[in-house]
Each structure stands twice: as structure tokens, then as C-alpha cells.
Computed example of a mutant assay.
Amino acid sequence: MPSSQPYSIKLKNGEEVKVNDHVYCSPSWGVRDGTPYSIARIMEFLPSQGTPTFDKDGKRNEPITRVRLAWYYRPSDVSDRTVADSRLLLAAIYSEVCELSQLRSKCYVLHRDRISDLAGWKKRPDRFYFTRLFDPWLRKEFEVIPAVTVRNVPEHIREVLISRYEYIVAEREVVPDLTDDLRLCDTCEKWCPPYVGDDRFPPAFD
């Protein structure tokens, strides 16, 4: 089994980064498209292409030359609308393996819900935040809400949801129903699902 110990890599600027850290990433000037940098979360470190991440004894194969990154978008990357807030990002359902040499330095990205003082957060260098997720295949934005705010589901489902996930992704129109107080049937006193005639909610089948 692979080692569960934290694994870190030292960047050229001397900073150490590990899985789930956020970083500035940019390719060499020769292949850059004009964007000075992109922002991403480190998902895993990888050896050279064709080399297994771990050997048969569960030890990480060296040297580490690549990294899998989960990208963030700027709102202007996916829409024509003007967004004055340069610290606002969109999480994305998209990851890519890049050369380790493309990582420039650390930055910090949090969900808006985890920031108590947004104005103060944005005054600090290298700080960003997000509230939505962008699906590049559907070309659509979704709300990202804390799992603990979901109340209008059966209790056993809510418990599993909270135990496994910190956030959930949902269409904006569905969020009020998910975060509403638990709705019970007046007759059986069990959870009452949303009206199936509503196009936002497909019918359930046994």
C-alpha cells in the first residue's frame, strides 16, 4: 500500500508544497498564451511518464517530474461579463498533468464560506476565493455550498453527506430546496421529496 505520510516538493523559489496546496502555474514563455499565470490545486505528484507512481513495495518512485493539477478559472475566462473582483475564481471539473517545472509559487484559495473577513482576506497577497464551479463541457456554472447547510433531505442521507463531503455542487435553482427546513408529509410524517412535476427534479423510480 502507498505510504500515507505527507509528501512535499520544494519549488525553485524555496517554498515547499504538498497535495491540496494551491499554486501559481505557468508554462515557459515560449508556449505561453499571454496569460501570466493560472491557479490550481495540487492533486498528486507523479514520476516521469510511463513510470508507476509507486513501486511494488509502496514507495514513491523518484524522481518526481510531474504534477496533477485541478484548475481554477477566472470569470473572464468563461464569460464575457465584467467582474471587477480580481480575487474571485471559479473551481472547475477539470484536471491536467503538467511538468513540475511549471509551478512558480504558493497561493491560497478558500471557499467564501470559510473566510470571516473577506475584505481583509483580499488585502493580503496571493489570496483568492470561490463560490461557484464551472463545468467546461456543459459550459455552465454551479453553486458550491457547504454540505452542512443541506437540511431538506432524509436524516440518514444528510449524515452520510456531511461525513463524506465538505461541499456539494448544485444548480442555483435547486439550492433553496436543499437548504430549506426538512419537509415532512402530513400523512406519513416522512420526508416529502420535491414535486416531481417540476422540471428541475426528475421523477424517482423504485
Score class of each variant (00 low, 15 high):
Glu143Arg: 13
Val97Thr: 09
Asp117Ala: 07
Gly120Gln: 03
Val83Trp: 05
Tyr73Trp: 00
Thr131Arg: 14
Phe142Arg: 13
Thr131Gln: 13
Val78Cys: 02
Glu44Asn: 14
Lys122Ser: 12
Tyr73Gly: 01
Gly50Cys: 05
Ile162Asn: 14
Arg74Val: 02
Tyr129Pro: 03
Glu155Thr: 11
Glu62Met: 08
Trp29Glu: 10
Val97Ile: 12
Leu110Phe: 08
Asp33Lys: 08
Gly34Ile: 04
Val148Phe: 10
Lys122Gly: 10
Leu89Ala: 00
Arg132Asp: 11
Arg32Gly: 09
Pro36Tyr: 00
Glu141Asn: 09
Ile42Asp: 03
Ala119Gly: 13
Ser116Glu: 14
Arg41Val: 10
Asp135Ser: 06
Asp135Ala: 05
Val148His: 09
Asp135Arg: 10
Arg60Val: 05
Ala119Thr: 11
Asp126Val: 08
Gln102Trp: 10
Lys140Phe: 10
Ala92Asp: 03
Arg104Ile: 15
Glu62Thr: 09
Val109Tyr: 05
Phe45Arg: 08
Trp71Asn: 07
Lys123Trp: 05
Arg32Ile: 09
Phe128Val: 06
Glu159Ser: 15
Ala147Gly: 15
Arg114Pro: 04
Lys123Leu: 14
Asp113Phe: 09
Ala91Ser: 13
Cys107Val: 12
Val148Arg: 09
Tyr129Met: 06
Trp121Ile: 03
Glu99Ile: 01
Glu141Ile: 09
Ser105Leu: 05
Glu155Leu: 06
Asp113Trp: 01
Leu118Arg: 02
Pro125Trp: 12
Pro146Ser: 01
Ser28Met: 01
Ser26Cys: 11
Gly30Pro: 02
Asn20Pro: 04
Ile157Cys: 14
Arg32Gln: 13
Ser79Gln: 02
Lys106Asp: 03
Phe142Leu: 13
Ala84Glu: 01
Glu99Phe: 01
Lys59Cys: 08
Ile39Trp: 03
Ile162Pro: 14
Ile145Gly: 05
His22Asp: 06
Arg132Glu: 14
Asn152Ile: 05
Ile39Met: 10
Ser48His: 07
Arg60Leu: 14
Val144Pro: 08
Arg60Gly: 02
Leu103Arg: 13
Val67Tyr: 08
Asp21Asn: 10
Lys59His: 12
Ala147Thr: 13
Ser48Pro: 01
Ser105Trp: 10
Ser28Cys: 04
Phe142Pro: 13
Lys123Met: 15
Gly58Val: 00
Val97Gln: 00
Pro63Phe: 03
Val150Gln: 06
Ser28Ile: 04
Met43Thr: 06
Ser105Phe: 02
Tyr94Phe: 14
Leu138Ser: 15
Leu161Glu: 07
Arg158Val: 08
Gly30Ser: 05
Arg151Pro: 02
Arg112Lys: 08
Tyr73Arg: 01
Tyr37Pro: 11
Pro146Thr: 00
Val17Arg: 03
Pro47Thr: 04
Ala92Trp: 02
Arg114Asn: 14
Ser86Val: 01
Arg127Met: 09
Ala119Phe: 07
Arg87Ser: 06
Arg114Val: 12
Arg66Gln: 04
Leu161Ala: 05
Asp113Gln: 09
Leu90Pro: 09
Lys106Ser: 12
Arg32Asn: 15
Pro52Phe: 06
Trp121Arg: 04
Val97Trp: 00
Leu133His: 00
Leu118Met: 14
Cys107Gly: 13
Leu103Cys: 14
Asp113Glu: 12
Glu15His: 01
Ala147Trp: 12
Leu161Gln: 07
Arg158Thr: 00
Arg41Leu: 12
Thr82Asp: 06
Gly120Glu: 10
